[in-house]
């Protein structure tokens, strides 16, 4: 079994490398499906494998950059990435993160910042989970009433009201398929940036619902565009954490190998999933993340880790099932289509 243990030259620890591949695979799958980095999933996993905490965050950041690159490439081929929207949002995101980080500095001087941040995080996650499930409930009601639009029934349509704001410059986002004031994505990304900076997270967890509910992106485009943003921020994050000496590069490569396979599965699975299927699974992930933070707050660290890892396992299995089922059906249809063509000739 010695061959399954790998020496990490920077961190100076021996790690069970198949565990790293597995974490990479799971996070690649989930990240490719939801359009987020997934730092909240990786850190407890690395910790359980015996990784020193000092290296977990930086290693995670570099792995997320590489993984998002693979996912963005695949989403781009599907036409799921609106690069123009992504670039416009980066401006707002970065300015927002700067403001959020400054708020944390002020709170730090006042004391008790950690508890405030944690409870704001819990409140925000609860809000996102409520939003997702309420939206689903509303969409189901509309579908029953026969109120179905171009892409199917929609629940919350706040973006329609926001699109009526015509402050110049107006911008058309081709891949996302709408025209709106440039200030809408800039403001939305600024607000999500402030929250991300304040909470000390990458922001995919907040940006994805903002893209859907406030900016009006179809779910698939929101996933691809968000991953494009995660890729850029992750690469810079990799550099700064490396400067701080907090990256174990060998672990990054090992995790990336698993993540590359997972990212394909997660990304291709979006093709076979309905937008609301993605949203509901995302809502469940957010809910579990919220419960794990509450458990951590009350020092139930082991229960929190079990919950996070259990959630990863279940959601990952669900996505793999969607992918395999969809692929089999598509190949079967192709085969029967070819057979029909042959019979005609």
């Amino acid at each position: 079994m010695d061959w399954m243990i790998m020496y990490m030259p920077i961190a100076g620890v021996k790690i069970f490398w198949p565990g790293l591949v597995l974490i990479g695979f799971a996070v690649g799958t989930i990240g490719g499906f939801f359009g987020m980095g997934g730092a909240w999933m990786v850190t407890p996993g690395l910790n359980i494998l015996g990784f020193p905490m000092a290296f977990a965050i930086g290693t995670d950041m570099a792995h997320i950059a590489g993984k998002s690159m693979v996912s963005t490439m695949r989403h781009s081929k599907f036409g799921n990435v609106d690069y123009k929207l992504g670039l416009v949002m980066i401006v707002g995101t970065m300015a927002g993160i700067e403001v959020g980080a400054q708020i944390v500095m002020v709170l730090e001087r006042l004391g008790s910042v950690e508890s405030v941040v944690r409870w704001v995080y819990v409140g925000l996650l609860a809000l996102i989970a409520w939003l997702v499930f309420y939206d689903y409930y509303k969409a189901t009601q509309k579908k029953k009433q026969g109120d179905v639009g171009e892409h199917g029934a929609e629940g919350i349509t706040w973006y329609k009201t926001l699109h009526k704001i015509k402050i110049p410059p107006m911008m058309h986002f081709k891949a996302a398929g709408f025209t709106c004031s440039a200030w809408l994505p800039i403001t939305a990304s600024f607000v999500t940036g402030v929250l991300a900076g304040f909470l000390g997270i990458g922001g995919g967890l907040i940006r994805m619902p903002a893209l859907v509910y406030l900016i009006g992106c179809p779910t698939h485009i929101a996933v691809g565009t968000d991953l494009f943003e995660v890729m850029i921020s992750g690469l810079y994050g990799a550099f700064t954490y490396a400067i701080k000496g907090r990256i174990e590069i060998v672990a990054v490569f090992v995790m990336l190998t698993g993540a590359a396979i997972g990212a394909q599965i997660g990304t291709v699975a979006t093709k076979y999933a309905k937008g609301y299927g993605i949203r509901i699974a995302f809502g469940i992930a957010v809910l579990c993340c919220m419960i794990s933070i509450v458990l951590k707050e009350f020092k139930f660290n082991q229960a929190a880790a079990v919950l996070i890892l259990g959630t990863i396992g279940v959601i990952c299995a669900y996505i793999v099932k969607i992918m395999i089922q969809g692929a089999i059906e598509e190949l079967h249809e192709k085969k029967s289509g070819n057979a029909t063509v042959k019979a005609v000739h």
Partner: peptide, 19 residues
């Protein structure tokens, strides 16, 4: 220019402060 000036904040917000 915005990317060059504001980028560091992104990474700083990426996680807890390193000890």
């Amino acid at each position: 220019l915005m990317v060059a000036v504001l980028m560091p904040s992104l990474a700083l917000a990426g996680g807890d402060k390193a000890s």
